[in-house]
Every structure is written in C-alpha cells, then in structure tokens.
Simulated assay, not measured.
Amino acid sequence: MSVSPNPQAPAESCPIRTMPEHVAFIMDGNGRWATSRGLPRTEGHRQGLEALRKTIRHAGKVGIRVVTIYSFSSENWNRPATEVSFLMGLLKRFVQRDLSELHEANVRIRVIGGRSDLEPGILALLEEAEDLTRKNTGLDLVVAFNYGARDEIVRATQHIAQRVKDGELSVEDISEDTLSQNLDTGGLPDPDLIIRTSGEIRLSNFLLWQAAYSEFYFCDLNWPDFDEAALDQALDCFCNRERRYGGVDAKAL
C-alpha cells in the first residue's frame, strides 16, 4: 500500500505560500528494515538515525519552519529491555554527536512528552539540549519523547482543572485555545503535514488534538530508506492539495 504523490509538480516549484510550515514524522519501520536484511533490529535504529539527520538538514533547506519527530512513545517502554537500552544509548550518542551541530545551525530543540517518571540521566540530556538551543531562531526541532497524545491531553486537562480550582480560571472561559496552550506543544503551530513511513495508516497516539486539520502522507518506505527525495515527494503531494478546514472549495461556489 502507498499513497502516491502527484508527480507533476516538483518540490522546488511549490509556491512558498503553500509549503508546510510544520511537518511531523512518525518514523516507522526501523526493525522491519533490519529484519528484511538479516540484521539485528538495533542496526535498523542506527540507520534510522542517519535518515533523521538527512531529513532535518533537508527540511531546513527547503524552508520548513517546524519539524516534529515521534522519537519514543510512552508505549515503547514495553519493548524488549535490550532494545529499549539500545535506544536510550542512541539518544545519548545523538546528543553527544549532533547537539553541537544543531546548535551551530541555529536549530532550537523542544522536547514534548511526560517527564515526571524519566530516569534522571535521560532527563538531564533532554534538558541540556533544550537549554543550549533555547535562544536559537532557526528551525524548531520538536522531539516527542516518552510521548502519548492521550496522556498529553490528560495532563493538560489536569492543569486547567487545577487553575479552575485555584480560582485563576473560570469554567466559562475554557476554550479550544485554552486546551491548545496547555498542551506540550503550546505556542507552536499545528502540523500542516504528518508523514508516516513503512505502510502503516494510523496515528498511533501521536498529536491527536493538533492533527485535526493536518494533511496525511503515508508511504511504503521503511524509515531508514527515507531520504531527501522522499521528503520532496511528500511535499509535492502536499502542495497539490487544497486545504479547506471544513469550508468549501472556492472554485465550487
């Protein structure tokens, strides 16, 4: 299965006004990529990191303002302990190797997801990345780590309820914007385009509130095979869609 892009409009011809400001990635298929080659799953994650590096660089070059990556879900802790341990080591190596390069490229890192139960060493790494790049003004790299959208909505609701209890907010003043601003992504634009690799067609508890009017792009490529050309194809597809946000195509009136 694949959702094929329209091949008639190359990414470089896409008008600036229709380019997505925010692109989110569900980076699926690392394990399948490795298994299909007779390699350990850990090698798939290693190659997936290389694909991520390419994607971030290319996104910045083509003018995308915000990139969100689903790096580790709150459900991923249920994977085999050896795989989880490897992924945590990969996170450490990513920070040690790539953080300075991202900082020099003016990338600002923001981490979303639950933090209260994270191991102190992992939490310190995430906070180091945020603190170092906080004042950068280039591409925003949003890392969803220990993230689940339902958990995010619950935490936001709890925070709003506490504000009501403390008399800081009235029930009548609660709006969609109130909830949006209390989510982990508060202050960021909603994703214009969500890309998922490996042929799966679901959100898997990712940005459920924020994805209300996102465009979706699904491709058969496993994440380690996703590259600059694959991103350009996804952008081609996005640029040929008409986003109506519940309205009517003006041409049909």
Rank of each mutant, 00 (worst) to 15 (best):
D225G: 05
D236H: 06
D140K: 08
G29P: 11
E172Y: 06
L99K: 03
G199M: 10
I109K: 00
N76P: 03
L123W: 01
F72M: 08
V95H: 01
I56L: 15
F94M: 10
R46P: 04
V84Q: 08
T55Q: 04
F86V: 09
I153R: 12
Y147H: 12
A51E: 00
L169I: 13
D236C: 12
Y245P: 10
H58W: 10
N6C: 06
P189Y: 08
E43R: 09
F86W: 09
V164M: 08
E101W: 02
V66N: 13
W33Y: 08
D117H: 15
P5F: 14
A156E: 03
R196M: 09
G114Y: 03
A250H: 12
I109Y: 01
G138C: 05
F25A: 04
S180I: 07
L52D: 00
C237K: 12
R163W: 04
E83V: 08
E119P: 00
S180R: 15
L253K: 09
P224K: 00
V67T: 11
F226H: 01
D140Q: 14
A212E: 11
T133D: 13
S180Q: 14
L179G: 13
E43D: 10
D173P: 05
A144R: 02
D177T: 15
S116C: 02
P20C: 13
Y217Q: 02
N240R: 14
G114R: 15
V248P: 01
S214W: 00
E168F: 04
C219P: 06
K54P: 03
V95F: 06
D177K: 14
L99D: 01
P191D: 09
T197P: 11
N146Q: 13
L90K: 01
P5V: 07
Q158Y: 04
R115K: 13
V23M: 11
L193N: 09
G113W: 09
Y245W: 13
E21F: 04
R37H: 10
